[in-house]
Design a protein around this nucleic acid. Sequence first.
DNA 1: GGAGACATGTAAGTGGTTACATGATTCC
DNA 2: GGAATCATGTAACCACTTACATGTCTCC
Lengths: 184, 184
Amino acid sequence: MSLKFGILGLLSDKDLTGYALKKEFDQSISHLWTASQSQIYRELNTLEKNELIFSRIEEQPDRPDKKIYTITPVGRTAFQEWLEAFPENLSSAKRDTFMLHMLFGSALPEETIRYQLHRFIEQKKAYLKLIEGVDLEAYYNDASRKELLDKRYMRFTLKRALMSLETLIEWAEWCLEEMKEDVK
Amino acid sequence: MSLKFGILGLLSDKDLTGYALKKEFDQSISHLWTASQSQIYRELNTLEKNELIFSRIEEQPDRPDKKIYTITPVGRTAFQEWLEAFPENLSSAKRDTFMLHMLFGSALPEETIRYQLHRFIEQKKAYLKLIEGVDLEAYYNDASRKELLDKRYMRFTLKRALMSLETLIEWAEWCLEEMKEDVK
DNA sequence: GGAGACATGTAAGTGGTTACATGATTCC
DNA sequence: GGAATCATGTAACCACTTACATGTCTCC
């Protein structure tokens, strides 16, 4: 439901190809929304059918042709309407495979859990580095960007990702401590 | 993919009806996995067809008949195999509608964002109270429970939910502070 | 009389994943 | 020679949501 509006939101800042949209999703907003390439292309087709966006083909001599999408006035209105209507329930559905494994952890040797917690910490630390490395200045100095995605709100979303990651690392370290102490 | 194993995991502790499974999901593990009622009934049918579980009907004179599901040895093996195979990537796909709204916040009046952040804080605080109120002792004193869901690991998952909620509240308060200061 | 708990399910539609398919260029 | 980047898409399948449908009992 919301992928549609994620795409419209990005297109309301500037025109993009499907390929470039995928990159925006991966690089700029993967900490709050993920989308696969085939999902994006499928959604673009639907949006064009419904006249919320339109496309033009840009031929490139050496590379495959580009199909560049632009948002229509109708698209802008639809996006604005969605934007104003915040969901009642502000938390999203949870489906965490790692935590499901953890929950049933007693059917596994403690060693396995410890090992997985260490992996967890490593992965979160790597992701933390990535988020800390995001250069907002450079991102917003991109001349093509009309700054509809306000720097402040982008900063807010990054801050949340950062704080959450730090907490997750703390949590996993707390678990490891607990497993040391209560030798059962 | 994992709902299947969530159900098998719960059934490896004790026999349950579809209705009771839904309650377990909502009450005990909603902080790490959510599932709708229709999803559970559909999955139970599939699991029974594949002989990972079987059912017996218990007639009740005054209420609708119960269909009680039991895990088979094959089911136990399948569950154990899944349990041992942790996913490579330990973070789950992100799809956070609230954060998507936030990201495009500059197309909304600041008042709206402030209001939504306050709502966010309220909701998280309410959820926090709920998690803090979970009585593990009572849960594990339920005579029918075979304690396959080890108290320790349940405690770990609750701790994570708790820490994460506290961080989210802190984050939203930080955002509100930021919005006070840089009067632009 | 109405709401909510108990108990089961089906149907239709939307959303998402995985795998396949093509093809040039650039960099190592 | 091989991997990565640029660039597009299709097909099949699986997961999830929402709405519908039925019926009793208990408590207020």
